[in-house]
């Protein structure tokens, strides 16, 4: 595997690889999201309790799941960057941070839109909502820390350190907040049991979760390529590329 990975330590190769991720996965993910949303919004059966308003689940759940997932992958990338001093990993951390922040914000907004008709309020101080909000602050912290340095390289390394510390802290925050207050419905898919959501409703949700993951990878590929070009703008291969 390392023999296969090795050439991608070179910026040119990494640039090509990330752009090809973007090229292939972007259309695929858009088709997936389109199909999932169409199926979920038009053809999935209406919920007997929540009526049609449950359909926001097809946006809310994928973005909430991947908001946590992106933080994990960001932390792992930051860890690799610090331990093996891989510069491209630092750039990937910076590429992921704003995307994760947007996903988190999206999960919070759709969640509060869903909460208004169901719970009768836009916001409650419930465990999952709170830990999602804290997650948003962690993302903003990584981003703000990067921008408070004049030297990009130092800023990127500092952001990596913070991402790793955040990764250690995310489970602690999650469980302590859960212990503090819980109102949100329990997990319906990820528990180790038969999913407590009906098949016809579940399928479009799974399609959406998967295509949002692809969407995230494609976006990261694009942002990574752009950040790489900016960081290497004085190098020969970039100059050749732009000509």
């Amino acid at each position: 595997m390392f023999k296969w990975l090795h050439p991608y330590a070179k910026p040119e190769k990494a640039y090509e690889l990330s752009l090809s991720f973007y090229k292939w996965l972007m259309p695929l993910s858009l088709i997936g999201i389109f199909v999932g949303c169409l199926w979920g919004l038009m053809f999935a059966p209406t919920d007997y309790q929540q009526g049609d308003s449950f359909r926001i689940i097809y946006i809310h759940v994928p973005s909430a799941i991947w908001s946590m997932g992106i933080y994990m992958s960001m932390g792992i990338a930051g860890f690799c960057a610090l331990v093996w001093q891989i510069r491209l990993m630092e750039i990937s951390v910076l590429a992921m941070a704003p995307i994760g922040a947007i996903f988190t914000a999206l999960a919070l907004i759709t969640g509060s839109l869903w909460g208004k008709p169901m719970w009768g309020t836009w916001w409650v101080w419930d465990a999952r909502l709170t830990s999602e909000l804290i997650l948003l602050f962690l993302y903003l912290g990584v981003f703000a820390l990067f921008h408070s340095f004049d030297d990009q390289r130092t800023g990127a390394k500092a952001a990596c350190i913070l991402a790793v510390i955040g990764m250690i802290n995310v489970p602690i925050i999650h469980y302590s907040v859960e212990w503090w207050n819980t109102l949100h419905q329990g997990a319906s898919i990820t528990k180790f049991d038969k999913p407590s959501i009906a098949g016809p409703m579940l399928w479009p949700l799974l399609i959406n979760i998967f295509s949002v993951l692809l969407f995230f990878i494609a976006l990261t590929g694009y942002r990574f390529a752009t950040e790489l070009l900016r960081a290497e703008s004085h190098r020969k291969w970039v100059i050749n590329l732009i000509k």
Partner: peptide, 16 residues
Amino acid sequence: GVMALLVVPLLIPALI
């Protein structure tokens, strides 16, 4: 200004 953003979210478990 960034100091608060870095410290406060990590402090929340202790507060709880």
